[in-house]
Design a protein around this nucleic acid. Structure first.
Lengths: 342, 342
DNA sequence: TTTAGCACTCATTTCGATAGAGTGCTAACG
DNA sequence: CGTTAGCACTCTATCGAAATGAGTGCTAAA
């Protein structure tokens, strides 16, 4: 579609613009060395590239900036990932070396490292309930009327929820029910749990216990909506340093969005495994028109587990971020699998 | 210390400045109606107030703005709290009406309401470990080498931590130890727990179990540093709308600070019960020189439990915020005590 | 003691001129 | 025919001078 030379020029322009955040002129491209043509020639090609929709011109007498389409081309034709700088690798090694026990700590820490390495905002999604199974269930009375339900998943996550004890239900009854659940449903995937409770536990309760309705209501509450995936943010303030967010209004819409965990979960969860790049308006959300979102999935035992994302301006260091994300997602998968693996 | 009239004028200036964020001139005070003197008279008083350190002048030909000392006087002499607007009261009622089970949900939601009512940033500290006691302890093996330790406190909070199983320790040994802990130490305040573990459980283990060192290490890990108090932030982006944070640099220092939970915990935890106002440089932290922090404590069963805070520019609507905070802290205490109370 | 009047100060706004970066086009060159 | 030098043109950003106006401090009168 693009000639060799056009491709080179487009590449050079995107590169320059990513560094400088300012419209790139023909002269500066010519002087870079990697495109050995006169400014005039480059100008001609630039005009063509603009006509084709890869470049844009803020005004007549300014240089060109890449359009979304331009970035897309740039990303799709990135040369094979460069190795990371040694200083960055050091951070990775630290990450691997640290003795982090809980899954959440691994994720949290990875997010911090990622944000400080890239100077963008990192968004990490914790384990998807979908892929874990029940390890242990427990009901612990707190008062006459309330109890705390504790659910431990196969990945070692602990969820807890305070529930109301239905009138008339005794402590021993609750204990029996919890035991029943552990006996019958340990190992069942979380997303099938509710169905199995109805089909198996329900019957049993109906046969042996007095307060069918109450007990079922209690279980319903305890396993309600398995909670959202946890979201870990880091480096949100890095947004402030990006010149494209000098405009407080734009900045606020983006930061506001980052406070809404459900939206984030939706934006990040993706069907694909592997790395995905969403540039500007390719993002569903209106507020992200000036942003690019790069995501990668990490896994436990080969099962998709969660998502790592980097949010930055469309003018983003794609090569670096993609490389980093690739390494980090592998590192996390390794760290997690190593810990809980068979 | 100040004459009646000076006090009135100072009040008027602070009021005006809080609304407009712009230096207040003698003319506008004179026109307000509540200080019926000519601009010239007011100017004289203003000059005196400046000399006394209550006011400042950005430059010779500008109006006056309150100094920290000025704000302090204003706050200390606030007229008795005005009743809240009905629309705000509605929000409170909603808060009370919602059936929120877990303590954390109550806190989280209160924070959101607070931020949206005040348009500042709300910072809420969760329950202080200090004031809760142990309800239940459990060790659940996850793999050959790891287990999850679950700690339930008297307030229904569930803490969990993944720990490494020391070499050679069997599952039944761990179970026995957990049972021992529950028998002996249930009801012991969290802050005394470590000492009691050493004094009581340690001995017992030494007598009956083989792996004293390993088991003690495990308990140490499980109860390590009882985790920081949880911090709930809401409305951080409200900072963006304040004209004093037009300067991205200042904004970033503040927002960066908000990302550091340990610092926040330190800033908010206070010895006093009740409402506390820290204006500008009265805050320990350098980054908060342009901010005021107003905190209130909420409680469970009369015991100090956690802190609610509002962070905004020194030019803050003190009257409104203090009133709101007062009501909200009571509401929260009621909501929490109502739920878990005897 | 209060206030009207007035000269003075100083940040902010406005406006025109200028500089400079970059383009598009044309014509010459190899 | 592709490439390049040259040049006129466009448009933004910058700069400085002048105008603006909000507000003060002081003095003198009420």
């Amino acid at each position: 579609m693009l000639s060799e030379r056009q491709s080179m020029i487009l590449n050079a322009i995107v590169d320059d613009y990513i560094r400088s955040a300012e419209p790139v002129g023909s002269r500066s491209i010519s002087k870079r060395g990697d495109v050995a043509f006169s400014p005039a020639t480059i100008r001609n090609e630039m005009a063509d590239l603009e006509e084709l929709g890869f470049l844009e011109q803020p005004h007549t007498s300014a240089g060109r900036i890449p359009s979304n389409k331009g970035y897309r081309y740039y990303v799709d034709h990135l040369s094979p990932l460069k190795p990371l700088k040694t200083e960055d690798l050091k951070l990775f090694k630290q990450l691997a070396a640290e003795k982090l026990n809980a899954v959440e700590e691994v994720i949290q820490h990875a997010g911090t490292v990622l944000a400080s390495m890239t100077n963008y905002t990192s968004i990490l999604l914790g384990p998807e309930m979908f892929n874990t199974s029940l390890r242990h269930f427990q009901l612990l009375p707190l008062s006459e009327t309330t109890a705390v339900a504790i659910i431990v998943t196969s990945s070692g996550e602990v969820e807890n929820k305070t529930v109301t004890i239905p009138a008339g239900v005794s402590v021993s009854e609750m204990e029996r029910m919890a035991n029943l659940l552990n006996d019958r449903l340990a190992g069942v995937p979380m997303h099938k749990l509710k169905a199995r409770i109805y089909s198996e536990i329900g019957q049993e309760i109906q046969r042996h216990a007095d307060h069918y309705e109450g007990l079922m209501k209690l279980l319903d509450d305890a396993f309600a909506a398995g909670k959202d995936q946890k979201v870990f943010l880091s480096g949100t303030t890095n947004m402030l340093t990006q010149p494209e967010f000098r405009d407080i209004g734009k900045l606020k819409t983006v930061l506001d969005l980052l406070e809404q965990t459900p939206t984030l979960t939706r934006l990040l969860s993706s069907e694909h495994k592997g790395i995905q790049v969403r540039i500007g308006s390719e993002n569903v959300h209106q507020a992200f028109v000036n942003c690019s979102l790069i995501t990668a999935t990490y896994s436990l035992e080969g099962e998709a587990f969660g998502t790592i994302g980097i949010l930055g301006p469309t003018r983003m260091e794609y090569a670096k971020v993609i490389g980093t994300l690739d390494l980090l997602s592998r590192a996390m998968s390794r760290a997690l699998t190593g810990r809980y693996g068979a």
